[in-house]
Design a protein around this nucleic acid. Sequence first.
DNA 1: TCAACCATATGTCCTGGACAATGAACCGAC
DNA 2: GTCGGTTCATTGTCCAGGACATATGGTTGA
Lengths: 309, 309
Amino acid sequence: MALNISAVERETGLSKDVLRMWERRYGFPKPQRDDNGERQYTAAEIAKLHAIKRLMDVGMRPGKIIHGALDELNALAEARTPAPAAPLPPDFEHDLVAMLRSHDAPGLQHTLANLLMRQGLQKFVLETVTPLNRAVGEAWMRGELQVFEEHLYTEQLQVALRTAINAFPRQTGTPKVLLTTFPGEQHGLGLLMVEALLVPEGAQCISLGIQTPLEDIRRAALAHKVQLVALSFSGAFPVRQATEGLAALRRELPSSITLWAGGEMTRRVRKTLPGVILIPDLAASIGALKSWRVHWAQASAWLAAQGER
Amino acid sequence: MALNISAVERETGLSKDVLRMWERRYGFPKPQRDDNGERQYTAAEIAKLHAIKRLMDVGMRPGKIIHGALDELNALAEARTPAPAAPLPPDFEHDLVAMLRSHDAPGLQHTLANLLMRQGLQKFVLETVTPLNRAVGEAWMRGELQVFEEHLYTEQLQVALRTAINAFPRQTGTPKVLLTTFPGEQHGLGLLMVEALLVPEGAQCISLGIQTPLEDIRRAALAHKVQLVALSFSGAFPVRQATEGLAALRRELPSSITLWAGGEMTRRVRKTLPGVILIPDLAASIGALKSWRVHWAQASAWLAAQGER
DNA sequence: TCAACCATATGTCCTGGACAATGAACCGAC
DNA sequence: GTCGGTTCATTGTCCAGGACATATGGTTGA
């Protein structure tokens, strides 16, 4: 199964420019050419590109890894794994990952629902989903999980979370929060997890799903009169794009609207972004909500005092 | 707010190559250059590009429309609108579109849930969601709906459908169906709608969400031992990519697995694809499922007869 | 020890040309 | 007159190779 350069771009997320540049500079990948002189990538090249992309998404440099063999790269991924040290759920992670690998969709769904019911939504997100995500991510990094197995996991988790969120009485509450991602961001699970934490706290969440154009985020925030805009960025999202976008959005939004940026990517952010609150991990979102409430109460009191004068 | 060529590619879905080629051939868009000689697109250019993209997604040729003014393009979209002729729900479409435009998220959610309960899942999908999608799509084409309003609609509908699908007893049933889309496809609503039609018919649906690499679709089909693989393509999906992908997938899948392709795009397909069943509209999926069952029963009978010999 | 600086590594953009694939118009045969 | 095939125009994708901006990591000097 040989793919042309567009197909490889779609499959790996590496742009055509990058693929050609790597070929020019590093000599890999060096695909065969068809009768028209166009690149034809083999399945093996694509597999290695996938491995390289995975490692780059966790911060490695292409020049250091591009000449390694496929199994060396997988070993690298293994080595990089920090301390697995399963924090709370003793074997659930292992069980769930095993279920994924044996393609037991019903069992997975059942176990997730079961855990969720036992723990409650917030605890489920913080103590089960978060470490589970890490476990799945690492298994995938080591090449132990196929892409489709990870897709299944994401879907099942979304089903479980959505169902639980829906069970809460909604449609009112303070603050009103707008949830979405920038264009280019493919992952929506983070949004759902934040929503799962905020809704039980009494916030009113309005999710636009992924990939909302910047200008429309602004319009939506104004139209829905939200007090808070929360954006989610996965680990693979380019920091530069994010910081530029956040700065632009901050400029366009009235200062009364708080702006949150969360997700894996935020850990790679160096600069401080004035007027943007970074939420480095999910648990922090609850704290940030509480501190928003304090400020809001103070501001209300101040306004009331002004009114009394 | 001036954007560079990458940002425009992300926002409009038009590739850098296409943007440069249009500039070269048609003289539009002709963005200013910054100090480095790099293109800087204005908001007005981007708005017009959005309008052009929308029209192209319904079959127009760029050369015919690229020189029209923005309002001429919106008028074109209006003119193209076929027969609105609301089939059944008398004013619901109008009401719901009005709710979208007034940003009444709770009302929208409530109305959708209400309709769903009254009509039942299948009828809701066929008689409410389908015309509603068309109404929303057309309103959007005419520039009456903002992107974020359409995002909100999609999200709310997904919530409603997922909740309803979840209420069905699951995890067993024949056939087992794998649902997903090709890489590059951004829209997952179609998958959810098919699932909403098939689950009540007693099929067991396994959804992988959007953008599963070809090779992983094959692996997933084998791993989950499905009898049917159903793929969804939105109107904007390039026919060529779809037909090539379908042919490749058909080649790689055992012939015992049926392959369905559905969604707006399928109406633009001319060639016949051997071994691929086109599902031109949602209602057809139920018929196709029934006819699959007949064939399956016959094949089972035949196998049994063979066994008795 | 820390900050400023510099070399290197890396990604993005550019131009302009070649060519493939798609759609539309035309033409001949039934 | 209509159907099917052929030709022509339109449109998108790919290629090469260069320029340059930015990020990274190490080094030097205070």
